[in-house]
């Protein structure tokens, strides 16, 4: 569709979007700036400094938590991506099957389910199974939550793919599995990658579910940040947060580069 008269820059557009984006971005920008503030007080600008970054790298407990979080995020995102992609394939290509409603229900509910409920229920399961709490229980919990997001992302892409492409592949000699691997999979790879990154960042972000399912001595970074934040603002936290934001920014940029390189037509970079 060509740009119609109605799609244009107006005073209303610009005002609404400027205010909206200012609201969304200003707090983060302020946080990043203050992470370089030499002063301990937020009101006082003590000059640019990397003091709080040094402090973080000397904080053994924080470093351990960060390492734990990265491992949980990487492992859970990977399992979630595999399971979520399989679920998306079953939902978009499986037509009707027994328990389909239950299946899709179980996959959509966690998207909005209050985290306290998911966290509590998983903890009770782990206690009942007498599973030692730590890395694996948090990883399983995060996988359960994030695979639902992966499913939605991949499912919406699969739904856009013209089914006649798969028919053409079969017509040219592919059995269904070959048709999927040689035609469908290459087309959904960018959305699978987007799903992985979404799962990774969601895991890196979670406090509530991790608090329920983790054990002593295996706190994740958000849990540590959270317990520090409850005691008030600490400039070191600003520095940690800035680094997390930088990490996520790098991941997103890499992803958009990757999807641009693959140059798949009609692919939208939007995760939701």
């Amino acid at each position: 569709m060509a740009s119609r008269r109605i799609n244009r820059i107006t005073r209303f557009n610009v005002t609404a979007l400027a205010l909206g984006f200012a609201f969304l971005y200003l707090p983060i920008v302020i946080l990043v700036i203050y992470s370089f503030n030499d002063s301990r007080l937020v009101t006082v600008w003590g000059g640019w400094s990397l003091r709080w970054y040094r402090e973080f790298f000397n904080d053994r407990a924080m470093l351990d938590a960060a390492w734990m979080s990265l491992r949980v995020a990487a492992v859970s995102a990977t399992i979630a991506t595999i399971l979520g992609t399989l679920a998306a394939v079953a939902l978009t290509r499986g037509e009707r099957f027994g328990g389909r409603m239950l299946f899709s229900g179980m996959l959509y509910a966690p998207l909005v389910m209050p985290e306290v409920i998911s966290g509590l229920s998983l903890l009770l399961l782990f206690v009942a199974l007498d599973a030692g709490r730590g890395f694996w229980t948090v990883t399983i919990a995060h996988t359960t939550l994030t695979m639902c997001f992966v499913t939605v992302v991949v499912q919406s892409r699969l739904g856009q793919i013209d089914r006649s492409l798969e028919e053409a592949a079969m017509d040219l000699g592919c059995n269904p599995a070959q048709a999927f691997l040689s035609v469908t999979l290459p087309l959904i790879i960018p959305s699978i990658a987007a799903g992985w990154m979404l799962a990774f960042t969601l895991s890196l972000d979670d406090v509530v579910i991790a608090s329920f399912t983790t054990g002593p001595g295996s706190a994740t970074l958000p849990i540590r940040i959270y317990s520090e934040v409850r005691l008030g603002v600490k400039p070191e936290i600003n520095a940690i947060c800035t680094m997390v934001i930088a990490l996520i920014a790098i991941v997103i940029t890499a992803a958009s580069f990757a999807s641009r390189l693959s140059r798949v037509q009609g692919e939208s970079a939007a995760p939701l």
Partner: peptide, 11 residues
């Protein structure tokens, strides 16, 4: 078969 929308593999 030649498909109506051609169904060329975009990748």
């Amino acid at each position: 078969m030649m498909f109506q929308n051609y169904a060329l593999f975009p990748h």
